[in-house]
Design a protein around this nucleic acid. Structure first.
Length: 225
DNA sequence: GCGACAG
DNA sequence: ATCTTGTCGC
């Protein structure tokens, strides 16, 4: 498939820019990013919602969103090319100077270590974390199920390299998959995800709120049709 | 041909 | 991701 090869070349080119160390002094504003999709007369549209919260008080600081027609189809491994352009437009509407972004999807846990969170992180040149609700198998490697206790985790090691981890964000609840995006390390990513996860959801608060906002806007757009 | 496949 | 109602359970 010609299109997919273009994406792979672009990912391989970006690969060498990934930063695996913390590049921040303090975290004040954290943004959660999520997209929702719907159709209008057979034309697919996407809504990107970004919700910024205060890392300590967890209060919502700002919400931004951007809707656009979809131009790129979804191909496993190439998700970022579909979602990053729309995310960047929504991000332009943000007034808050965000310290860290959390994406709904993988970062380093990707065939070329270039998932959504990493791709966006390199463009933003800011710290990002990828949090996926489902496992995206790389090189036929399975993950080890962590203990059913909040905070338990197992690193996902592929060919001797740590791609990310499976983290139990809530006791007795299906685990999530955490990986670095850019300008951050995995240990810190895990700590932050745990800090932002409570009994309301197994997903960290910023992305959970972004998910709710994106779907709220989608339902409104669908009833207007 | 069959199954897998972040969102 | 989305199409979709009720339903079992804390």
């Amino acid at each position: 498939m010609a299109i997919k090869n273009e994406f792979i070349k672009a990912q391989l080119d970006m690969q060498k820019q990934i930063c695996l160390t913390n590049q921040f002094n303090a975290i004040k504003y954290v943004a959660g990013v999520d997209l929702a999709y719907y159709n209008v007369d057979g034309t697919e549209h996407a809504i990107c919602a970004i919700v910024v919260i205060d890392y300590e008080t967890k209060e919502v600081v700002e919400i931004a969103s951007y809707t656009a027609q979809t131009t790129v189809l979804y191909i496993p491994g190439c998700l970022s090319f579909r979602e990053v352009p729309i995310f960047l437009k929504a991000n332009e509407l943000l007034n808050t100077k965000v310290d860290l972004y959390i994406f709904d999807g993988n970062g380093y846990l990707h065939p070329r270590n270039m998932g959504l969170a990493t791709h966006a992180g390199i463009i933003l040149d800011l710290p990002t974390i990828g949090v996926a609700k489902n496992y995206f198998k790389v090189q036929d490697t399975d993950y080890i199920m962590p203990a059913p206790i909040k905070g338990a985790y197992e690193n996902i090691i592929i060919n001797g390299k740590v791609y990310g981890c499976v983290l139990r964000s809530r006791t007795n609840v299906k685990p999530i998959f955490v990986s670095i995006g850019n300008n951050i390390d995995l240990q810190t990513s895990r700590d932050i995800v745990i800090h932002l996860t409570s009994k309301e959801s197994r997903i960290p608060l910023p992305t959970r709120l972004a998910d709710i906002e994106a779907n709220r806007l989608r339902k409104i757009a669908q009833t207007i049709k």
